[in-house]
């Protein structure tokens, strides 16, 4: 293959990564933005989504699309419910203290990971894609499903943006993010907003995982890379900024796809992690974020 088509292929792969990453990172960013909680267990909610997608799609017989659609609806709901319980039982009792919640979510990470290993096992298992149409480009054929992942993710991102900017729920969330005490004084149930946001963040990660699982496979350790990448995206995009998160996800996804096609993936990770740490040291509000209050 020549350089041009090779680069196109790398870019397409990068865009698929970006699409999933944007959804996952958006969940992390919402939770941090509104609740000021750094959710270290976010990657495990992603993993749970993928594992549940496997469980649901194997439990339902018939056309793969039926099982996949059921997983796309049910898996995020179950993950959201689990997140809700974790929020009520642990995070609320810690009064959302940033340092205590980090320690607690590290604890959740270990618990979820170990339970997945115990009940799901160490194998990586595939989920059948809902359709297997191949789009033929002049140089190579490309999976239609992968392209639909990009489209679905873009759709969901626009929907989230509309909810945040055009609805009452979004207004309440933004008010809580801006100043939770004043919001409370104006009769906003801040406590319930926090619970909802934490569940929503986990659900976004789960949806991203269901979308990606027909391409990669479900595995109990699959939450670690998305966690690190989401951190990178959220930091570069500016903690709590939606537009920045999406731009940064596309940037990181594309460069990750292109760099790992042409260079060693370990070296790519070293450079990316180091650069992001430096961004955080010298530009703590990210490249697109504004100073937080």
């Amino acid at each position: 293959m020549h350089f041009g088509p090779h680069l196109l292929l790398a870019a397409l792969e990068g865009l698929v990564t970006s699409a999933v990453l944007a959804l996952t990172a958006l969940g992390l960013s919402l939770v941090f933005g509104v609740m000021r909680v750094v959710n270290v267990a976010h990657g495990e909610f992603f993993m749970l989504g993928a594992v549940l997608a496997w469980a649901i799609s194997t439990a339902i017989s018939g056309h793969p699309a039926v099982g996949f659609l059921a997983a796309l609806v049910l898996a995020p709901l179950i993950v959201g419910a689990i997140a809700l319980v974790a929020e009520r039982l642990v995070l609320r009792r810690l009064h959302y203290n940033p340092e205590a919640t980090i320690v607690a979510t590290i604890g959740m990470l270990y618990i979820i990971q170990q339970l997945a290993l115990t009940f799901y096992g160490p194998e990586a298992r595939p989920v059948e894609p809902p359709f297997t149409y191949r789009i033929l480009l002049p140089w190579f054929g490309y999976s239609g499903y992968k392209l639909s992942v990009i489209a679905a993710s873009a759709l969901l991102l626009v929907a989230t943006w509309l909810v945040l900017t055009r609805t009452k729920i979004g207004l309440v969330m933004r008010a809580t993010q801006y100043d939770s005490e004043t919001a409370q004084a104006f009769g906003i149930p801040v406590d319930r907003v926090y619970a909802g946001v934490f569940a929503l963040g986990a659900m976004l990660a789960a949806i991203a995982a269901v979308l990606i699982v027909p391409i990669s496979q479900a595995h109990y350790l699959m939450g670690q890379d998305p966690l690190l990448l989401s951190f990178i995206v959220v930091i570069i995009g500016g903690l709590g900024s939606l537009r920045g998160t999406v731009v940064a996800a596309v940037l990181i996804g594309l460069s990750d796809g292109i760099i790992s096609v042409f260079f060693s993936p370990t070296l790519a990770k070293i450079i990316a992690t180091f650069l992001v740490a430096m961004v955080l040291v010298f530009r703590p509000h990210g490249l697109f974020g504004t100073a937080s209050r």
Binding site: V90, V103, A104, I106, G107, M108, L109, Y110, I111, Q113, Q114, L115, L117, T118
Partner: peptide, 11 residues
């Protein structure tokens, strides 16, 4: 499942 114990202990 010792990681489970570590996790529960932390929380």
């Amino acid at each position: 499942a010792y990681l489970l114990i570590v996790g529960i202990a932390l929380i």
